[in-house]
Simulated scan of single mutants.
Amino acid sequence: MRIFISLVILFAAAIGLAVGARFNPGNVVLFYPPYRVDLSLNFFLLLLVLVFVTLYLMLNAIRDAQRMPQRVAAYRREKREREGNQAMRDALKALFEGRFGHAEKAAARASQGPDNAGLSALIAARAAHRLGHPERRDTWLTKAHQDGALKTARLMTAIELLIDERQPETALEAVNELQATGTRHIHALRLALKANQRSQNWPEVLRLVRLLDKRNALHPALSRRLRELAYEHLLSDSSHDAESLRRMWSGIPSDEQVQPYVAARAAAAFNAKGLHEDARRLVEKALAKEWDDRLVRAYGESATLGSPSLLAQIERCEEWAKARPGDAELELTLGTLCLRQKLWGKAQRHLEQALSDALDAVTVQRVHLKLAQLHEALNQPEEAAEHYRRCALATAI
């Protein structure tokens, strides 16, 4: 519709000009003494239009000529940007495909442009790391350092690559620098966790695990395993004395103190330092929360010969045995406690009950060993030898 209207207006203008020119008797006289030029008005108007068009084209040509260097520079700049962006895409594609040599070369081409220099340096650093060239990797990371906007990306990349190269101390330096910027996102916390785990900084591992658990950023099985490792190393540290061990235990959250793997490890640590009463109390508290064979075993190890609490432990185990019949570990623990208290009949009865309830070879072996010790104490060498033989057979199995 617009084209039709435009054509109608154009035709109307042409008809108007033709009619006006036909019936226009005007004349134009130009005097330049001693010359005189007579022109019709229509021809003069035509010449005026031609002169205007000519001047317009000449001025445009002069302006285009003046702008030619800028246009050439802009064209070359756009060409470099296109080539740099293409090189960047090639580098990313090669990196994801695992062609790290091609990725580094493409990233080197992309780094020639100022806009892609920082990101291409990070890509090249990852590629050089995968190729096993840490010197080139560090060189690329240094180049990426020049781009302040990529500080977080550079530090994250450096932490990840240093952890992979098993340099946790250097990675932790980058972690501290990253935390100084206020960065606390999930992946940064995961990398910090891995770095502290590699450097065996177990208190920090526990702190990061708790923080990631609050954000549901760790699988429960992984979280549990990391906690186990942390508490295993913290509680088995031989540098602890009795007071430092108690102080460290008091710093553990109460909901974690009753976890079986924590309580069992802590009981072993307390027993190793001769703090059997502390071990007994924490095991009883943990068993009240959740029953676990490791805790029952630790409870038996917390008893000492001649201790005033030994009879109380036997009574507590008997109460548990009534509530949990058929528990081989509990029967073994109760028999062991009776053996230490020299209650021979009760010890033999509970140990034989544990032997009948035992389902695994390790428990069978431990029961036979205790029965052998019982018969030795009763001066029954033949029975003791038989149980020692069965203990050896269970070990072989």
Rank of each mutant, 00 (worst) to 15 (best):
G98E: 07
L17G: 06
G101W: 03
V283G: 05
R36P: 00
E290V: 14
V209I: 12
L172Y: 02
L359Q: 15
R324D: 02
L229E: 15
A153T: 08
P69N: 10
S6Q: 10
D357A: 15
L275K: 05
S244L: 07
E81L: 14
A149E: 13
A21H: 02
R210P: 00
P325H: 11
P134R: 06
R198Q: 15
E284H: 13
E228W: 11
A267I: 09
R281Q: 14
T181H: 11
L122G: 01
A124Q: 07
H129F: 10
Y299V: 04
R76L: 12
R294H: 12
R390Y: 05
A230P: 01
H129V: 04
E97H: 07
K322F: 03
A149V: 08
G335V: 07
D64W: 13
W320Y: 10
H145I: 01
R294M: 05
P220Y: 08
Q257Y: 05
T333V: 15
Q353T: 13
L141A: 01
R63C: 00
A268E: 13
D38C: 00
Q200W: 01
L343A: 13
R80Y: 01
T183A: 11
A372R: 09
L234E: 10
R340Q: 15
A358L: 03
K273T: 07
H145D: 13
N176Y: 06
E173Q: 14
E173K: 14
L369E: 08
V53Q: 03
A267N: 08
N85A: 13
A266F: 07
L235P: 03
P114V: 09
L172S: 02
V262S: 07
A124I: 07
L178V: 07
W140V: 01
L150G: 06
E319G: 12
S120Y: 02
A110M: 06
G132F: 04
G335T: 11
K143S: 08
K346S: 13
R246L: 14
R71N: 11
A14D: 00
A61D: 01
R76K: 14
G132Q: 07
E165C: 01
L295H: 06
R89P: 00
H276I: 04
V53I: 15
I3K: 05
K143N: 10
K273M: 11
V262H: 09
A242P: 01
Q353A: 15
L287R: 12
D327K: 12
L334F: 09
S250K: 15
I314W: 00
A268D: 13
Q112K: 15
R247L: 10
N201H: 14
E331I: 02
